[in-house]
């Protein structure tokens, strides 16, 4: 038997970061880092430690554990934003490799002269079921990020995605999209090629797809750029992922007239997984390993795979028409309004 799998090209994939690799701490984890430095300093004294110092070391370790516990129990949306943007956060292609280890056939191009590297798509296999996987790709490190344009797609990317969605529909393949993008790329060329139209058209056409669509927010899902691959029967969010109408920085610079208020904006916009579930937008939250997915990417990938398997089997029995109707009703009921007294 021939296994139809091609290794992804070097420039497109990196191995998931493993726990053994040093994890870069985040700004909000600084109190913990300071404590850890103290502990390391003391511990390096080795056998020369006096009884007092040993007691001190134990005390510090206990304190570090408490601080860590508290940091994560009091976690703010702004803290989550740091986790969601952690340079070592598992990205789309890393997760594809983990959840579909044996099969990955990337399909390139929009057939209009371009192959946007900010949105990647291809066929994978989950639980023996062929699936179309499409996602925004953030790279690891500057070189890869430039290659993938930091996950910010141009019209060509959305048009490629649509081609793949329609391909999937033709062959009755469920679609899984993964979103991690600061938004569509705000460029001159994109405006001339109709970035707004490309996103709008994807929204409309995704609404019509007669196959199951599951969308997972991996990190930050920001503005219309996320929706261009985000219209789904089920939306899952990783625990620290955020789904927002505008980046907190963008919101702060408009409403507070300074990006320095980003933390306040992140809080006010109500963009966490729990918020989005309360609004009836997200359908599920995938718990991350303590401290964020980058600490144990494989554990996260495993949980993601389980969630996707469940989601797919939930939707497996629905007819094409039922899927379209369910998607319609899902979005139809999102919103909040009041009656105003007649003037």
């Amino acid at each position: 038997m021939v296994t139809l799998s091609t290794p992804p090209s070097k420039s497109d994939i990196t191995e998931p970061v493993e726990a053994s690799q040093e994890v870069t701490p985040l700004p909000f984890e600084q109190p913990l880092v300071n404590l850890q430095d103290k502990i390391d300093e003391l511990a390096s004294a080795g056998d020369d430690l006096s009884v007092d110092m040993n007691a001190e070391l134990t005390r510090l370790r206990k304190q570090a554990a408490d601080v860590k516990e508290k940091l994560y129990s009091d976690i703010t949306p702004a803290n989550r934003l740091q986790i969601a943007r952690h340079p070592q956060r598992p990205n789309f292609l890393e997760l594809v490799r983990a959840i579909s280890p044996n099969t990955w056939i990337e399909l390139h191009g929009d057939r209009g002269g371009s192959d946007d590297r900010a949105i990647i798509g291809g066929i994978g296999e989950i639980d023996g079921r062929p699936v179309m996987l499409v996602g925004t790709q953030k790279g690891r490190g500057m070189k890869e990020n430039l290659h993938h344009n930091f996950g910010m797609a141009n019209p060509e990317g959305y048009r490629k995605a649509l081609r793949l969605f329609q391909h999937a529909e033709k062959f009755n393949m469920p679609i899984i999209t993964m979103i991690d993008t600061p938004g569509a790329y705000p460029g001159m060329d994109g405006e001339e090629k109709g970035i707004g139209q490309a996103i709008a058209f994807n929204i409309r056409e995704m609404a019509r797809l007669k196959v199951p669509v599951i969308s997972v927010v991996l990190g930050e899902a920001s503005s219309g750029g996320a929706l261009g691959i985000g219209v789904a029967n089920k939306i899952y969010m990783l625990e620290h992922a955020l789904y927002t109408v505008i980046s907190p920085e963008g919101c702060a610079s408009i409403l507070w007239r300074s990006a320095e208020h980003a933390a306040r904006a992140a809080d006010a916009l109500k963009i966490t997984a729990d918020d989005l579930m309360a609004f009836g937008i997200a359908d599920g939250k995938i718990t991350e390993p303590f401290g964020g997915a980058h600490h144990q990417p494989k554990v996260l990938a495993n949980r993601l795979q389980i969630a996707l398997k469940e989601g797919l089997s939930d939707l497996a029995s629905a007819s094409g028409e039922e899927l379209v109707e369910q998607r319609y009703q899902k979005y139809r009921h999102i919103g909040a309004y009041e009656l105003v007294d007649a003037e």
Partner: peptide, 10 residues
């Protein structure tokens, strides 16, 4: 917030 964003889909 995100409720506004979803009106695009609606």
């Amino acid at each position: 917030g995100t409720l506004s964003l979803m009106q695009m889909v609606k």
